[in-house]
Structures are given as structure tokens and as C-alpha cells.
Design a binder for these strands. Structure first.
Length: 583
RNA sequence: GCCGCCUUAGCUCAGUGGUAGAGCAGGGCAUUUGUAAUGCUCAGGUCGGGGGUUCAAAUCCCUCAGGCGGCUCCA
């Protein structure tokens, strides 16, 4: 989950922190045997970690919440107390709080601070509210496991999450937002709108695109391919399997092994399913001698890759095991780098805007501690990236040392309709692979020179981006993307011939149209089509048939009046060209 | 992968030891309808798979799979 009203978060931190103490207080009251971990404020609320053998049940949470409300209502003052470390250690030894003891031992200095509210005392640096009474509205949200000190070898704690506010209205607003997030969840909408599925029989993290989801994906792909071709990219296809040797040369077997599916043994080879597209593109590059005259080469592939993600991290379409990247690799001369980067950045933004996103966060990640290539090259590449970002006129942030070992990169995140951000585009300079594969071209002096390689994905993974789109539009895709753009709804059987005529004409014109010939009342047909979030409905009754018109209805907007068929075709044509935020 | 929870009809969910239920969706019939749910009727489940306890298991236990919430991870 992302920030809830950015501007408020800082103010609410002590607030949430205090509520986490109230949580711990309540838990100790009700379950004295529980041992306390830590309980900070987080981006959206707070949590507290507890060590307890039995899991907390939903009923437990209810009891705890009731007790918390009592503690809050009691208006206990939060008293800060300074203690000698030895005294504090003695205290926690007596109370058996071994996790607190562990923390104290690692704290610098010989004083520590406690916060006391009524009978409850906790080791804490603060700051806190002056009284528990400030917390007027609170709720517990969930309980989940966590490792003590985030170490999977240590004790498993139970982490209780909650949130609180100074008034009930703010809490209600927050819960409303949670509800909204749930309603937009692409996993729910994927089922409701029959877009895609996962199949137990096939395995986790593998996407089955149903006709409607596939229709959207196909439009996305066609659009991307077309835009790339307009910008001098060429399309490649590379095999899904290739010899293990290739992955040894690329280095993936060394540092990416845990994500590669086990090898397929065939005859005298061991084949790996590709987790990346780059080595394949490189083989094509190396297939013959390259001249500086043909650079830059911009090679793109809708490249489907498979990565063995741990089962616990899979999440709908956002984290899968098989996905398709809108991948491209640009091989260029060092002197072309600036232009190629600049073009790639503005290309990425164009594409993201087309899909309806208007707000971006751009990150420039620079050289990490461990790196390959020369410092001079890194500097030049980082400089090129910087210029590329500056050219598009959007503020960006530098993440020092966050680059990958093989080169600096630019990441672009989009903000969706709820203000949540999602990582999409990435533009990375690579000093590693050209070296490993010994790439070269013949320069104008007839000498061999190493090309610079840029990895670039615009949407990232089609699956993931599709999931984000579903949530962004709440399943109501804009006209140009909608799997069904218009539904023809005859009012009675008597209009079915006319309806068929309209349906066929629109279909022939290339629109994605369905016709509802079911034996239902028109209001039922409309309801069904509205629930499917079809952008336009053409309702045809006796009057329309006689006049050769259609009664048009737009999703979410209701009746749009009666228009002629020609007007309808013209209108739909126009809508086709409306990308970006338009419906 | 780890911890916890969950898995009953296509979907959403009742049913806690005595051999399965509702609404929606689907099929059929009637109805021919004017902008978000016409009525009647039928069909649909080896209760996620396997094993165990018991006279008897959707229900209790074990195990596997999948999902969910987190943790960790996401060069």
C-alpha cells in the first residue's frame, strides 16, 4: 500500500507510534505471557511485534481492539523517563522481556528512555503524544508473521497492524480508501471481467489470458511495436530455450541462478528457459561483423521470460513466474549515447502518457560499491542519463550507489488513479555484457571498437502493466483499449435483424463489438453491459429501426441521445484516437 | 522459502461429527419488453488432492497443492 495523503504522514507518526504502545499495553493486559518485540509507526499506521506460541485469532484482535479503546479513552499521560541502562536491563530481566533486553544491549550510551502510560512501561526513544486520550479513532487491520530482527533464522513474531486518527471521520475516510483499493484489485476484477486466470493444474505464477484480457494485451503489443518501428527499432524473436553455456558466458548462471528454472536435459545439451532476453539479442549482434555505419541498432522483442520466483512472493499479475517484457537493446557508439538515452526517456514518457498516466517519478541510480567497467565510462554514462532526464523537464531524484553492478540506470515510476506508484520503465547502460561477449564494431578508422549497450523496457512486464492498468481504470478501459468497445442491444427480437446489421457493419469496420440477443428485458441487458464496463451501448428499438438510428449510451454517463448510424461510426472513429486519460 | 490463516456449485458465501444449501451466473419454457435485475423450471458439488481417527468426517488429525496476509527477496 502506498502513502495515504502524503502531507499528513509526518504529523501522524508520533500519533501512530503512541497507538502502537496502546496496542502493546492492551496485549499485555489480556495476554500477560506474551513477549514484546518492537512497535514502530509505519507509512500507513503502525504495527507491534509479539512473541506468542498460539496465533492471534480474529476474535483476539477484537478483544485487543476493545481494550485499546478503553486505554485511549482513559486518557493516560505518556510519561518519558530516563533510566540507567543497568537499571533498565534489570527491569526487563525481571519482567522476562528478553527481546527488549537484546535491544538495550545494543543501544549506545548508558542511559535509555522509557515511556510509561498507566501500568504499562516500554523502552522507547519517542516522541509520543502527551496522552493516550488524543487517539480518538483506531482499528486493528491484520495480523501477519515477521521474523525477529528481519532474520529468518530468528524467532517468528506475530505482527499486528493497525491505524488510528485524531477523529472518527479521518478513520472512516481511510477505511473508505481501503475499500476502494479492494474494489480495484486486479485479482478481483480479473475474475469479474473474465480477463485472465491462474490455473492450479498449470502451476503458480503462470498467466492464462482469456479472450478479453488477451484482446487488451494484443492492442498493447500492436501499439508498442508500431511506436517502436516509427522510432527506428526493429523487431526480433528469440527462442525461449538456449544452451546453458550461453548463460555461463553472460554471467547469469553465477549471479542469477536462483531465478533460473532447472535445466532441460536433451541429447548432449542442457537447455535453460530464458530469464532474460539480452543474451539472445547479443547472439544476433555477434552473428556477423558490424560496422559503425549500421549503428545504432535498436532491437526490440516482446520477450517472454521465466523466473523462478519464490512461491511466497507471487502476487496476482504484479509478481509472476512467466512474463513478457517489452524489451529492447540498443547497441550504439559512445558518441551516440546521449541522443539514444534522451530519445529513450522521452519515448517512455510518451508511451506511459498514452496509457493514461500523467504523474511520474524518475530515479537516477549511480555507481554502487561493486561495479564492472571503468570509472570514466560510468561517469560518462551517468552524465548521459542525467542529460536525458533533464531534457524531458521532469524533476528526478538521484539514488547514489543504487545502480546495478553493470551500469547506471534510470527508472520511471507512474502514479495511478489512487496516487500509488508503480515501477515501469527502466533504461540501463550495460558495461558488462559487451565485455563478456566481446562485442565490437568496426569504426570509421577501420579499427575494432566496443559498442555501448542500453537495456530498455517501457512498460516493463506486460502482465504487470496490465494489472496496473486494470486497477488504474478500475476495469473500465478507455475506448481504444477496451476488449469490447460497444454492445448492440436490441430491445426485442423484432429488432434483431437490424441489430445484426449494425453489429456486422461495426465489426467490419474493425471495432470490437458484441451483440446481446438474449431473451431479456432491455434494462437487464443494459445492467449486464454496464457491469462489464463496456464503453458504449447501442440500444435499438422499433423507433431506431424505422429511422435507421441508434440510441447511444455511454458507460457511467447514461444516455447520449439518438444519432444516425453514420454519426455513430464517425464518433467511434474519433474515440479510437483518444488515448491518454480519455474514455 | 518462512510464519499464520483460508480452500464447500462457474462466482459470492451458509453449513463444526449423523452421508450437502442459498443468491447470482448457466440450460429450458413462458414473456416481446424503451435505458442498471420478468417469472417459472431444470441442471450443477467424490465439500482442493491423498492418508488417518471414528459405527459415522465438509466438520477432528497428518500430509501435499493452491490462494490470502506478511516476512525475506526483487543482481
Amino acid at each position: 500500500m502506498q502513502n495515504f495523503m502524503n502531507e499528513k504522514i509526518e504529523d501522524l507518526q508520533p500519533f501512530w507510534h503512541t497507538t502502537s504502545h496502546i496496542l502493546a499495553h492492551a496485549v499485555k493486559d489480556l495476554y500477560p505471557e506474551v513477549k514484546l518485540g518492537t512497535g514502530p509507526a509505519i507509512e500507513n499506521g503502525f504495527y507491534y511485534d509479539f512473541y506468542r506460541l498460539q496465533p492471534f485469532t480474529p476474535e483476539d484482535l477484537k478483544r485487543i481492539e476493545v481494550r485499546m479503546k478503553e486505554i485511549a479513552a482513559a486518557g493516560l499521560p505518556m510519561v518519558r523517563e530516563e533510566r540507567d541502562k543497568s537499571e533498565a536491563e534489570e527491569f526487563f530481566r525481571k519482567t522476562g522481556e528478553n527481546f527488549k533486553l537484546e535491544i538495550i544491549k545494543e543501544l549506545p550510551g548508558d542511559k535509555v528512555t522509557f515511556y510509561r502510560q498507566g501500568e504499562f512501561i516500554d523502552l522507547c526513544a519517542g516522541p509520543h503524544l502527551e496522552s493516550t486520550g488524543k487517539v480518538k479513532a483506531l482499528t486493528l487491520l491484520s495480523v501477519a508473521a515477521s521474523y525477529w530482527r528481519a532474520d529468518e533464522k530468528r524467532e517468528s513474531m506475530q505482527r499486528i497492524y493497525g491505524i488510528s486518527f485524531p477523529d472518527q471521520a479521518a478513520l472512516d475516510e481511510y477505511l473508505e480508501r481501503l475499500k476502494e483499493i479492494k474494489e480495484r484489485d486486479h485479482r478481483r476484477l480479473g475474475v469479474e471481467l473474465d480477463l485472465y486466470s491462474f490455473q492450479d493444474e498449470a502451476g503458480p505464477g503462470l498467466v492464462f489470458w482469456h479472450p478479453k484480457g488477451a484482446a487488451v494485451r494484443h492492442i498493447m503489443e500492436e501499439y508498442l511495436i508500431h511506436e517502436q518501428q516509427k522510432r527506428g527499432y526493429q523487431i526480433l524473436y528469440t527462442p525461449h530455450l538456449s544452451d546453458e553455456h550461453l548463460w555461463q558466458v553472460s554471467g547469469h548462471l553465477d549471479f542469477y541462478r536462483q531465478y533460473i528454472f532447472p535445466a532441460l536435459e536433451t541429447e548432449n545439451r542442457r537447455l535453460l528457459v530464458k530469464p532474460m532476453n539480452c543474451p539472445g539479442h547479443i547472439l544476433i549482434y555477434k552473428n556477423r561483423l558490424r560496422s559503425y555505419r549500421e549503428l545504432p541498432l535498436r532491437w526490440a522483442e516482446m520477450g517472454t521470460v521465466y523466473r523462478l520466483e519464490k512461491s511466497g512472493v507471487l502476487h496476482g499479475l504484479l509478481r509472476v513466474r512467466g512474463f513478457t517484457q517489452d524489451d529492447a537493446h540498443i547497441f550504439c557508439r559512445p558518441e551516440d549515447l546521449d541522443k539514444e538515452i534522451k530519445d529513450a526517456v522521452s519515448f517512455a514518457l510518451d508511451v506511459l502518457r498514452t496509457f493514461g498516466f500523467a504523474e511520474f517519478e524518475i530515479f537516477l541510480s549511480t555507481r554502487p560499491e561493486k561495479f564492472v567497467g571503468s570509472e570514466g565510462n560510468w561517469e560518462r554514462a551517468t552524465d548521459a542519463l542525467k542529460k536525458g532526464v533533464e531534457a524531458v523537464g521532469i524533476a528526478y531524484r538521484v539514488d547514489p550507489g543504487e545502480g546495478v553492478f553493470y551500469g547506471p540506470k534510470i527508472d520511471i515510476k507512474i502514479k495511478d488513479a489512487l496516487g500509488r506508484s508503480w515501477q515501469c520503465s527502466t533504461i540501463q547502460v550495460d558495461f558488462n555484457l559487451p565485455e563478456r561477449f566481446g562485442l565490437s564494431f568496426i569504426n570509421s578508422e577501420g579499427k575494432e571498437e566496443q559498442p555501448i549497450m542500453i537495456h530498455r523496457a517501457l512498460l516493463g512486464s506486460l502482465e504487470r502493466f496490465f494489472g496496473v492498468l486494470v486497477e488504474h481504470y478500475k476495469g473500465a478501459f478507455p475506448f481504444w483499449l477496451a476488449p469490447v468497445q460497444l454492445a448492440v442491444l436490441p430491445i426485442t427480437e423484432k429488432e434483431s435483424d437490424y441489430a445484426q446489421k449494425v453489429f456486422e457493419r461495426l465489426t467490419k469496420d474493425g471495432f470490437r463489438v458484441m451483440i446481446d440477443n438474449s431473451d431479456e428485458k432491455i434494462s437487464k441487458k443494459i445492467r449486464r453491459a454496464e457491469l462489464e464496463k463496456i464503453p458504449f451501448l447501442a440500444i435499438l428499438g422499433k423507433r431506431e429501426q424505422e429511422a435507421g438510428t441508434v440510441s447511444l449510451r455511454q458507460h457511467g454517463k447514461g444516455e447520449q441521445g439518438v444519432i444516425s448510424r453514420e454519426e455513430l461510426f464517425a464518433k467511434l472513429k474519433e474515440f479510437c484516437n483518444q488515448t491518454g486519460g480519455a474514455t
